[in-house]
Design a protein around this nucleic acid. Sequence first.
DNA 1: TGTTGACTCTAACGTTACGTAATACCTTAT
DNA 2: ATAAGGTATTACGTAACGTTAGAGTCAACA
Lengths: 246, 246
Amino acid sequence: MMKVKEVADLVGISVRTLHHYDEIGLLSPDAITESGYRLYSNNNLETLQQILFFKELDFPLKKIKEIIKSPTFNREEALFMHRKLLLEKRNRLDVMIRTIDKTISYTKGEIQMSNQEKFEGFDFSQNPYEQEARERWGDEAIDQSKAKVGKMSKDEQAAMGEKMNEIYRNLAALRHESPASPESQAAIKKWYDILNKMGNYSLEAFKGLGQMYVDDERFTKNIDQFGEGLAAFMRDAMAVYADTNQ
Amino acid sequence: MMKVKEVADLVGISVRTLHHYDEIGLLSPDAITESGYRLYSNNNLETLQQILFFKELDFPLKKIKEIIKSPTFNREEALFMHRKLLLEKRNRLDVMIRTIDKTISYTKGEIQMSNQEKFEGFDFSQNPYEQEARERWGDEAIDQSKAKVGKMSKDEQAAMGEKMNEIYRNLAALRHESPASPESQAAIKKWYDILNKMGNYSLEAFKGLGQMYVDDERFTKNIDQFGEGLAAFMRDAMAVYADTNQ
DNA sequence: TGTTGACTCTAACGTTACGTAATACCTTAT
DNA sequence: ATAAGGTATTACGTAACGTTAGAGTCAACA
């Protein structure tokens, strides 16, 4: 249980913001002391994390409230969507950085840029970013009358979990061979495919994920349950896969 | 000369926004028709580009106005600063994406994340991003009484330009050797160093810039003035340099 | 035990950057 | 010349807090 300022300092927002979120019913602390102090639980913090992700994607608080209060709200699905949208935002930033690079270099060479070029990366309405998000979260998740296409049922989730375990076991069996061997690469391809059913991973991201498997020991521990050294093996196999399939 | 809607559509903002910028004196069109229609010049568009860069970095319009109206305002310097800050913003996004990846994977493995971890990438106040920008633009660029440390005089700029030309010529002379040869790499290192005096280029960015030298023909043309094929040679040398100096 | 200093509360008005009408004039294609 | 679509001004609305202001709370130190 944390008090307002602790939370505010932890996540880098103002106390007033937390007050505000309480006011509008977006995030009310799980407990309140006798003297009226707000006490935030770990659960509250998770919700806050979700809220901030949505905010980073420029969703209005009103919409965020609708979304996370909705009974059909799926935390996992939201995370994958966030990931995807953040990646797109990152790409826009990349384009803007490129635009700057061009501008800088052109200035030196007295080259004229077209007006189009000057604003590459700025026009947010052109790319599907907002559109798609609103369709997905604004309609599908809220309007319960619509069919929940693309969403997984509990059963499907369980099935997917089992498939993932199978791939783990498969990889564990191969882990003493070369990560670049055809068998290893075939197995790791399955891993890539199943991840992409959920989250849309780029090859680069896939490679990065593999690195995390060994960088973060809790990850490592979790994966190595299927066999000592599996995490490291997967990292290598994932790197090879990413590099050879560019 | 473009009318409001043309401009709005080009850059992806609303007509109202342009009206607003005119209202507050941030960006007034260079010309107005008899009937009062706003007509934006190419110059206006460049200013608008600057404004949008600052906005992307969350500067309030009031500050943006102060900055770009200031007589000490240096467009080049601003571009470099923008580049740097956008890169930092991109890095924050990367951290957030990582955080999501962790959250997703941990959820599967029933691993607990620390509260700290949950909010990695969110706390914008901790990194120098805003701080630095305000110091640089809020004080130094505005408050004319302060010394303009770190800023280049006209003379220094000219000197730097001459140095760059020298490197070009040097590289041109080497362009029929291997881009990986010690001489080529020594020359390209100079290029890297001089760019970094101005803009803080990562190795990755440096490599990307090299690619642009051949992707964009205006670039190519400009560079190849020093010798046919120099742009392509530089791209290769820059790639080698980036890869070997990681 | 009293007193500070840092923290917390509610209440309420202020601010930024536009959105959203409403009303009226301008321009261009048919 | 008439309709469709663009533009102008004026003005009120709104979202997400910022910013006092006044008062109570808590932990530690004198």
